[in-house]
Amino acid sequence: MALITAKDLSVGYGGQTVAEHLNFKVNSGDYLCIVGENGSGKSTLVKTLVKLIKPVTGEVKYGDGLMPGEIGYLPQHTVVQRDFPASVKEIVLSGCQSRMGLRPFYNSEEKKLAADNMEKMAITDLANKCYRELSGGQQQRVLLARALCATKKMLILDEPVSGLDPKVTAEMYELVAKLNKEGITIVMISHDIKSAVEYADHILHIGNTIYFGSKSEYLNSKAGKIFMMMQSKDPHAGKPLTV
Protein backbone atom coordinates (compact mmCIF):
# COMPACT_ATOMS: atom_id res chain seq x y z
CA MET A 1 0.00 0.00 0.00
CA ALA A 2 1.17 3.52 -0.76
CA LEU A 3 2.30 5.85 2.01
CA ILE A 4 -0.15 8.51 0.89
CA THR A 5 -3.15 8.10 -1.39
CA ALA A 6 -5.23 11.09 -2.38
CA LYS A 7 -8.62 10.29 -3.86
CA ASP A 8 -10.56 13.01 -5.63
CA LEU A 9 -9.12 15.43 -3.12
CA SER A 10 -10.10 19.09 -3.04
CA VAL A 11 -8.17 21.43 -0.82
CA GLY A 12 -8.80 24.97 0.32
CA TYR A 13 -9.64 27.21 3.24
CA GLY A 14 -12.94 27.47 5.07
CA GLY A 15 -14.92 25.52 2.44
CA GLN A 16 -13.41 27.63 -0.36
CA THR A 17 -11.69 25.35 -2.85
CA VAL A 18 -8.26 26.26 -4.13
CA ALA A 19 -7.35 23.09 -6.03
CA GLU A 20 -9.68 20.21 -6.79
CA HIS A 21 -9.93 16.70 -8.18
CA LEU A 22 -6.45 15.70 -7.17
CA ASN A 23 -5.63 12.02 -7.46
CA PHE A 24 -2.17 10.77 -6.69
CA LYS A 25 -0.13 8.25 -4.78
CA VAL A 26 3.15 8.48 -2.99
CA ASN A 27 4.92 5.16 -2.60
CA SER A 28 7.71 4.39 -0.23
CA GLY A 29 11.02 5.61 -1.65
CA ASP A 30 9.45 7.99 -4.17
CA TYR A 31 10.68 11.48 -4.88
CA LEU A 32 7.61 13.49 -5.84
CA CYS A 33 7.91 17.03 -7.05
CA ILE A 34 4.86 19.30 -6.95
CA VAL A 35 4.93 22.09 -9.50
CA GLY A 36 2.48 24.79 -10.57
CA GLU A 37 2.08 28.55 -10.79
CA ASN A 38 1.98 30.88 -7.81
CA GLY A 39 -1.31 30.60 -6.01
CA SER A 40 -2.27 27.29 -7.60
CA GLY A 41 -2.61 25.66 -4.19
CA LYS A 42 0.63 23.73 -3.75
CA SER A 43 1.19 24.89 -0.19
CA THR A 44 -2.47 24.36 0.58
CA LEU A 45 -2.16 20.77 -0.63
CA VAL A 46 0.82 19.92 1.54
CA LYS A 47 -0.76 21.62 4.53
CA THR A 48 -3.64 19.25 4.01
CA LEU A 49 -1.25 16.30 3.79
CA VAL A 50 0.30 17.14 7.17
CA LYS A 51 -3.16 17.75 8.62
CA LEU A 52 -2.78 21.45 9.30
CA ILE A 53 -6.03 21.99 7.44
CA LYS A 54 -8.92 19.71 6.56
CA PRO A 55 -9.68 18.63 3.00
CA VAL A 56 -12.69 20.39 1.49
CA THR A 57 -13.86 17.15 -0.08
CA GLY A 58 -12.29 13.81 -0.80
CA GLU A 59 -9.78 12.14 1.43
CA VAL A 60 -6.15 11.46 2.11
CA LYS A 61 -5.29 7.93 3.15
CA TYR A 62 -2.12 7.11 5.01
CA GLY A 63 -0.73 3.62 4.58
CA ASP A 64 2.26 1.44 5.38
CA GLY A 65 2.08 2.43 9.03
CA LEU A 66 2.62 6.12 8.31
CA MET A 67 1.01 8.43 10.83
CA PRO A 68 0.41 12.03 9.72
CA GLY A 69 2.30 13.27 12.77
CA GLU A 70 5.36 11.32 11.65
CA ILE A 71 5.90 13.29 8.48
CA GLY A 72 8.82 15.68 8.62
CA TYR A 73 7.44 19.01 7.41
CA LEU A 74 9.36 22.05 6.27
CA PRO A 75 6.91 24.95 5.85
CA GLN A 76 7.27 27.51 3.06
CA HIS A 77 7.59 30.31 5.55
CA THR A 78 8.77 29.79 9.06
CA VAL A 79 8.15 33.09 10.73
CA VAL A 80 10.51 33.26 13.64
CA GLN A 81 10.49 36.46 15.57
CA ARG A 82 13.60 38.48 15.21
CA ASP A 83 14.33 38.37 18.92
CA PHE A 84 13.47 34.74 19.64
CA PRO A 85 16.18 33.19 21.77
CA ALA A 86 16.66 29.63 20.56
CA SER A 87 19.80 27.67 19.85
CA VAL A 88 20.18 25.40 16.84
CA LYS A 89 20.29 22.41 19.14
CA GLU A 90 17.05 23.31 20.88
CA ILE A 91 15.29 23.73 17.56
CA VAL A 92 16.53 20.49 16.02
CA LEU A 93 15.64 18.60 19.19
CA SER A 94 12.13 20.00 19.03
CA GLY A 95 11.69 17.88 15.91
CA CYS A 96 11.50 14.90 18.23
CA GLN A 97 8.33 16.18 19.87
CA SER A 98 6.09 13.71 18.06
CA ARG A 99 8.23 10.79 19.22
CA MET A 100 8.09 11.75 22.82
CA GLY A 101 4.32 11.82 23.20
CA LEU A 102 3.47 12.75 26.75
CA ARG A 103 6.92 12.00 28.15
CA PRO A 104 8.21 15.31 29.51
CA PHE A 105 11.87 15.12 28.53
CA TYR A 106 13.89 13.98 25.52
CA ASN A 107 15.71 10.71 26.08
CA SER A 108 19.26 9.92 25.07
CA GLU A 109 18.12 8.20 21.88
CA GLU A 110 16.34 11.36 20.74
CA LYS A 111 19.31 13.50 21.67
CA LYS A 112 21.53 11.23 19.60
CA LEU A 113 19.11 11.42 16.68
CA ALA A 114 19.23 15.20 16.85
CA ALA A 115 23.03 15.15 16.94
CA ASP A 116 23.15 12.73 13.99
CA ASN A 117 20.84 14.87 11.92
CA MET A 118 22.83 18.00 12.71
CA GLU A 119 25.87 16.09 11.52
CA LYS A 120 24.07 15.12 8.30
CA MET A 121 23.14 18.72 7.64
CA ALA A 122 26.65 19.88 8.51
CA ILE A 123 25.48 22.22 11.23
CA THR A 124 27.11 20.50 14.19
CA ASP A 125 29.50 23.41 14.71
CA LEU A 126 26.53 25.77 14.89
CA ALA A 127 24.79 23.72 17.59
CA ASN A 128 24.99 26.36 20.28
CA LYS A 129 24.51 29.34 18.01
CA CYS A 130 21.41 31.43 18.13
CA TYR A 131 19.04 30.66 15.25
CA ARG A 132 18.32 34.27 14.44
CA GLU A 133 22.02 34.96 13.82
CA LEU A 134 22.35 32.38 11.06
CA SER A 135 22.25 32.97 7.33
CA GLY A 136 19.19 31.97 5.33
CA GLY A 137 20.83 28.80 4.04
CA GLN A 138 21.98 27.79 7.50
CA GLN A 139 18.52 28.41 8.90
CA GLN A 140 17.00 26.26 6.18
CA ARG A 141 19.35 23.41 7.05
CA VAL A 142 18.43 23.73 10.72
CA LEU A 143 14.75 23.42 9.84
CA LEU A 144 15.51 20.46 7.57
CA ALA A 145 17.38 18.76 10.40
CA ARG A 146 14.36 19.36 12.61
CA ALA A 147 12.05 17.88 10.00
CA LEU A 148 14.36 14.87 9.75
CA CYS A 149 14.09 14.31 13.49
CA ALA A 150 10.34 14.13 13.10
CA THR A 151 10.34 11.29 10.61
CA LYS A 152 11.77 7.94 9.71
CA LYS A 153 9.84 7.73 6.48
CA MET A 154 8.78 10.88 4.75
CA LEU A 155 9.77 14.51 4.31
CA ILE A 156 7.45 17.15 2.88
CA LEU A 157 9.38 20.23 1.85
CA ASP A 158 7.63 23.40 0.75
CA GLU A 159 10.02 25.34 -1.47
CA PRO A 160 13.12 24.53 0.53
CA VAL A 161 15.41 26.49 -1.77
CA SER A 162 13.55 29.78 -2.08
CA GLY A 163 15.85 32.65 -1.29
CA LEU A 164 19.04 30.59 -1.41
CA ASP A 165 21.92 31.37 -3.73
CA PRO A 166 22.64 28.96 -6.64
CA LYS A 167 25.49 27.20 -4.87
CA VAL A 168 23.58 26.62 -1.65
CA THR A 169 20.53 25.63 -3.71
CA ALA A 170 22.56 22.97 -5.48
CA GLU A 171 23.88 21.72 -2.13
CA MET A 172 20.35 21.58 -0.78
CA TYR A 173 19.17 19.48 -3.73
CA GLU A 174 22.11 17.13 -3.29
CA LEU A 175 21.31 16.78 0.39
CA VAL A 176 17.69 15.95 -0.30
CA ALA A 177 18.65 13.51 -3.06
CA LYS A 178 21.01 11.81 -0.63
CA LEU A 179 18.28 11.48 1.96
CA ASN A 180 16.05 9.97 -0.70
CA LYS A 181 18.74 7.40 -1.56
CA GLU A 182 18.93 6.55 2.14
CA GLY A 183 15.30 5.51 1.89
CA ILE A 184 13.34 8.59 2.93
CA THR A 185 10.37 9.40 0.74
CA ILE A 186 10.44 12.99 -0.49
CA VAL A 187 7.57 15.27 -1.44
CA MET A 188 8.90 18.61 -2.56
CA ILE A 189 7.30 21.77 -3.89
CA SER A 190 9.53 23.57 -6.30
CA HIS A 191 9.40 26.33 -8.84
CA ASP A 192 12.64 25.18 -10.30
CA ILE A 193 11.38 22.78 -12.94
CA LYS A 194 14.88 22.04 -14.14
CA SER A 195 15.93 20.58 -10.84
CA ALA A 196 12.54 19.00 -10.39
CA VAL A 197 13.00 16.86 -13.47
CA GLU A 198 16.62 16.23 -12.63
CA TYR A 199 16.03 14.78 -9.18
CA ALA A 200 12.37 13.72 -8.89
CA ASP A 201 10.90 10.50 -10.21
CA HIS A 202 7.27 11.64 -10.09
CA ILE A 203 5.68 14.97 -10.88
CA LEU A 204 2.37 16.40 -9.69
CA HIS A 205 1.37 19.47 -11.62
CA ILE A 206 -1.51 21.51 -10.26
CA GLY A 207 -3.18 24.58 -11.64
CA ASN A 208 -5.28 24.94 -14.77
CA THR A 209 -4.28 21.51 -15.89
CA ILE A 210 -3.72 18.77 -13.41
CA TYR A 211 -1.20 16.11 -14.10
CA PHE A 212 0.24 13.28 -12.11
CA GLY A 213 2.66 10.69 -13.37
CA SER A 214 6.23 9.66 -13.63
CA LYS A 215 8.81 12.16 -14.72
CA SER A 216 9.32 10.81 -18.23
CA GLU A 217 5.59 10.72 -18.90
CA TYR A 218 5.29 14.28 -17.65
CA LEU A 219 7.97 15.57 -19.98
CA ASN A 220 6.03 14.18 -22.95
CA SER A 221 2.64 15.34 -21.74
CA LYS A 222 0.93 18.51 -22.87
CA ALA A 223 0.91 20.04 -19.40
CA GLY A 224 4.58 19.36 -19.05
CA LYS A 225 5.52 20.80 -22.40
CA ILE A 226 3.57 24.01 -21.88
CA PHE A 227 4.89 24.47 -18.37
CA MET A 228 8.46 23.82 -19.40
CA MET A 229 8.17 26.29 -22.20
CA MET A 230 6.78 28.96 -19.88
CA GLN A 231 9.45 28.30 -17.34
CA SER A 232 12.25 28.54 -19.87
CA LYS A 233 11.03 31.99 -20.88
CA ASP A 234 11.07 33.05 -17.27
CA PRO A 235 14.52 34.46 -16.51
CA HIS A 236 14.28 33.30 -12.89
CA ALA A 237 13.60 29.69 -13.69
CA GLY A 238 17.10 28.70 -14.63
CA LYS A 239 18.39 27.75 -18.04
CA PRO A 240 16.08 26.65 -20.83
CA LEU A 241 15.70 22.96 -21.02
CA THR A 242 16.69 20.67 -23.77
CA VAL A 243 15.10 17.30 -23.32
Binding site: L52, G69, Y73, T78, V80, A86, S94, G95, Q97, Y106
Partner: peptide, 23 residues
Protein backbone atom coordinates in the same frame (compact mmCIF):
# COMPACT_ATOMS: atom_id res chain seq x y z
CA UNK B 1 6.31 24.35 33.75
CA UNK B 2 9.17 21.88 34.16
CA UNK B 3 7.12 18.92 32.97
CA UNK B 4 5.91 20.76 29.89
CA UNK B 5 9.01 22.83 29.28
CA UNK B 6 9.89 21.13 25.99
CA UNK B 7 6.33 21.29 24.71
CA UNK B 8 6.03 24.94 25.69
CA UNK B 9 9.21 25.66 23.77
CA UNK B 10 7.96 23.77 20.71
CA UNK B 11 4.60 25.51 20.71
CA UNK B 12 6.12 28.94 21.30
CA UNK B 13 8.85 28.60 18.72
CA UNK B 14 6.84 27.26 15.82
CA UNK B 15 3.18 26.54 16.23
CA UNK B 16 2.76 25.36 12.65
CA UNK B 17 5.46 22.75 12.91
CA UNK B 18 4.24 21.62 16.31
CA UNK B 19 0.76 21.14 14.88
CA UNK B 20 2.11 19.17 11.93
CA UNK B 21 3.99 16.93 14.34
CA UNK B 22 0.72 16.08 16.02
CA UNK B 23 1.35 18.15 19.16
Amino acid sequence: FILFYNKIFAVTFDETFARSAGT
